[in-house]
Simulated assay, not measured.
Amino acid sequence: MLEQPSVWLAIIAFVAAIGPLVFFHELGHYGVARLFGVKAEAFSIGFGREIAGWTDKRGTRWKVGWLPLGGYVRFAGDMDAASRPAHGDGDPDHFQNRPVWQRFLIVLAGPVSNFLLAILIFAALFMTLGTLQSSNVVGEVVPDSAAARMDLRPGDEILSIEGQGTEQFSDVARIVSLRPDENVELVIKRDERQITLKGQLGAIEEEDRFGQKVRLGLLGVASAEARFDRAGPVTALGLATNQTVGLTRSIVDGLGQIITGKRSIRELGGPLKIAQISGQAWVLGLYSFIFLVALLSINLGFINLLPIPMLDGGHLALYTIEAARRRPLSEAAQERAFRGGLAFLLIFVLFVTLNDTVSIGLFDRLQRLIG
């Protein structure tokens, strides 16, 4: 099991990982807003009291807050960091008075920037350090495994699992690992014929490299071909895009399993867990830390697309309703939505923080210190 990082190392690694992601996220909002001529009054990394900052020639205050758990861009005409409109504002150049499609794109640009950043990080890793290229053709079937019971054979090409394409063996591993003991459907190619196989996956519980216990699905096959190569720019971008799409689908799968009760809600992590894993990735080396940053960037982009008021996805949902109705919801309805979204987020943050304290053994450490 990997040694737990010190508190200070975890904090430093957390800020080093989250800070750039928040910056790029907000830079996406800011860049598209500038494109449409919307003025930004403040660009903040972190919340709370300003600890450093400056004002540029356009009047935008660039600053760093003392609480590094997010950030925001406050546009001209916004009442607060959640981009709620100020009352009585009629300036056509202010954010809330721009056409709904422009507001939609400005808000969408933040999450999109996180996905694009992840693609660029993966592409850089694949070009410099290389990537494992593995065939989706079965090379070996483990006896008495789930694959053997499904009648998978060496030479079979696995085309899809549960409707998800499997161009490489890494896709097979990713999809299977999220489905311990589940019944699945595989589409394979055998002797130029497509065949559908069904069966129950196996399962195993093990510790990941960060010392976290995870339950993984098992199929019981090995790839017929695997090699480690450096990729050219075009190939690397394609592989990086596939990696980002695949990891995003894994997040969707995992969230869906938690919602349906197939996976425990205790698997959800919050700031403390992220800080712990950031410190552990830092200890493991530059590759592990950069890979984690890319993964966190995907998570940040995905979470912000959830249709929860106060998040980007909540704004996008409201703008979609506004476009369909040809008029925005009433101020009272929007206020209720924002209050409900804020309450949900506060409860969620409290839950995952308490969840983190149990997961990282904080209570046990405190008991040992007191004892």
Rank of each mutant, 00 (worst) to 15 (best):
P5K: 03
P5Y: 02
S6T: 12
I11H: 03
A13I: 11
A17P: 08
G19E: 04
P20V: 08
P20Y: 10
V22R: 05
E26T: 14
H29T: 06
Y30N: 06
L35T: 12
G37N: 12
V38H: 11
F43S: 06
F43K: 13
S44M: 12
I45Y: 07
F47S: 05
G48A: 09
R49M: 14
I51V: 11
W54P: 10
T60C: 06
K63T: 06
L69M: 10
G71T: 05
F75D: 03
A81E: 15
S83I: 10
H87C: 12
F95G: 14
P99V: 04
Q102L: 12
R103N: 01
L108H: 05
P111N: 04
P111Y: 11
S113I: 10
S113L: 13
I119C: 08
I119Y: 07
M127A: 09
S135W: 03
V137C: 02
V138S: 07
V142C: 03
A148V: 03
M150G: 00
M150A: 04
D156C: 05
F169M: 03
D171A: 01
A173P: 01
S177E: 02
S177D: 04
D181E: 15
D191G: 10
I195V: 04
K198F: 05
A203S: 14
E205F: 00
G211F: 02
V214K: 01
R215W: 00
L216V: 05
L219M: 04
S223V: 00
I258Y: 05
T260C: 13
A275P: 01
Q276M: 14
Q276E: 14
Q276N: 15
Q280M: 12
Q280C: 09
A281P: 09
G285E: 13
F291P: 15
F291T: 15
F302A: 15
L306I: 02
P307A: 06
P309K: 02
G314T: 04
L316A: 07
L318M: 15
S330V: 01
R336W: 07
F348E: 13
I360Q: 11
F363V: 10
D364L: 13
L369W: 11
I370E: 08
